[in-house]
Amino acid sequence: MEEDIKPDRKINIKGLVCPYTFVKAKLAVEDMEIGQVIEILLDYEEASRSIPKSMEDHGQKVLKIEKINDTDWVLVIRKEKE
């Protein structure tokens, strides 16, 4: 299941707000190969919704959106498209 996916890359964008949350996430995805998976740690609530939406719009696959504690979220995204 998705729980078992081991990310190829992890980034921590805690402290960043939109649009830099997505800017950082997008640049990281650009540097990956298709099929690779990234785990994104963030603490800006709006980005927990906007990053998955924008990634889907750009043709990437959102595998997981999880609130892990009071302040932080983890997103897991697989690169499907250059």
Binding site: P19, K24, K26, L27, E30, D57
Partner: peptide
């Protein structure tokens, strides 16, 4: 690699699918 200033200056380009960091 972009500097932090460049990330801010060009952020509206970078988030466009047609541009991105590569563009």
């Amino acid at each position: 690699d972009f500097t932090e200033d460049q990330l801010q200056r060009y952020s509206r380009h970078i988030i466009l699918p047609e541009v991105g960091g590569k563009g």
